[in-house]
Write a protein that binds this DNA or RNA. Structure first.
Lengths: 211, 211
DNA sequence: CCAAGCCGTGAATCGTGATTCACTTCTTGG
DNA sequence: CCAAGAAGTGAATCACGATTCACGGCTTGG
């Protein structure tokens, strides 16, 4: 025999793989998924297009992993903020929402890609997992708030989903790179919106029309 | 000379054009945009693929028109419901939201396509117009409510956008074909959620963390 | 230094679905 | 009925980007 993979080669291989993934993330953060062709990623990583396939079975798998990692990082932050301290659920909710909003505004192109940009179905599936993750974090807080009587009983799953949708739309929909001052106002508006929506006492309305 | 287009031929042409557009809408309503290849549309309309191009310059233009028409119909309904009667803005808001939700649940595949499915950029642009349309309808109601003191002053544009996002996510996100009974509950939850979010008195929270 | 065989390369290939176009069929006014 | 030309046809073409692969070049253990 002659060649056997050793720790050194494995490390090199891991490093290259990591470089490719990092390049893919950079590309998405800079120009969105639409700009992230395999060639563009390879160029950015300093390898040939074919080399991408030495480390990932397909473009879909590469980006599934990239999205998974990036989304996990975001979710971890929100999750950590939302479960830190002894404050009432409502307050931790506000903190989580604020963290979500600030991070989205800090990297709008990446946020758009992670939340709303059209992507390959395989990547979309990955995205869904994390969307559910956010929903579940919020739903857990809502359950807690309902249990302690902080907020009125509701279908927490649905409300949490609505909150995720509201944040996503308001943050990545306009895509307007609002000035820092405006961003503060936007964050404040959204936090207030979300808190209102889970108010303790339900708002009453006299009648519903049926369409 | 010999041939001159006449009223009869023009009518026939218009009819075919309409048939193609209708087939395209049917296809989207049945299998989503992803299923709507030009060939599939042509087959459904009973014409050859090439004929589609006699009536529309491109697939993108065809679907831009289809989306425009379908979205306008939806927007008109919500808009009409929201501006009918003398009820306070809040109540008309509830009625509009309810109409939106019911219609989305009645045609989930079409709703998904109109709201969230990945589509061609040209079609996406059309979709954005109507998304703004919904936002503006809600924003106008909010402005009215703020003016009459029904609700607390807010950035109505942003709040309206958040409402649109919340409804979209909660209605087309799960895609779960909830049983009719569940649908009623879902509609009720969403209406309540939206009304809460625009409550007259803001909910207070003691502190914000800064991420 | 050598043979074995992994690693990297990037031009060629492939798959998919929109778009074209040479041809046929239909309408029209004379 | 005829010539002019519009409308309809659908197989062939094209565009585009992912994926492959035959070819060096490098590493490794002996």
């Amino acid at each position: 025999m002659a060649y056997r993979s050793t720790e050194k080669t494995a490390a090199r291989s891991r490093a290259t793989r990591h470089r490719i993934a990092a390049a893919a993330l950079d590309q998405v953060a800079e120009g969105g998924y639409a700009s992230a062709s395999v060639q563009a990623v390879a160029r950015r990583a300093g390898v040939a297009t074919g080399s991408v396939y030495r480390h990932f079975p397909s473009k879909a798998e590469l980006f599934a992993e990239v999205f998974r990692t990036a989304s996990q990082r975001e979710l971890d932050v929100v999750s950590a903020v939302a479960s830190a301290g002894q404050a009432p659920a409502t307050e931790r909710m506000a903190a989580g929402i604020e963290a979500f909003a600030r991070r989205a505004l800090a990297g709008p192109v990446l946020a758009y890609a992670l939340i709303a940009e059209p992507v390959d179905p395989v990547v979309e599936a990955e995205r869904l997992v994390f969307r559910r993750g956010y929903r579940d974090v919020f739903a857990a807080l809502l359950d807690e708030g309902v249990a302690t009587g902080e907020i009125a009983p509701v279908d927490t799953r649905t409300v949490a989903a609505a909150l995720v949708g509201a944040l996503g739309e308001a943050l990545v929909g306009p895509l307007s790179p609002a000035s820092p001052g405006r961003q503060e106002a936007l964050v404040a508006t959204l936090v207030q919106f979300c808190l209102n929506s889970i108010h303790k006492e339900d708002v009453h309305v006299r009648a519903h029309t049926h369409a």
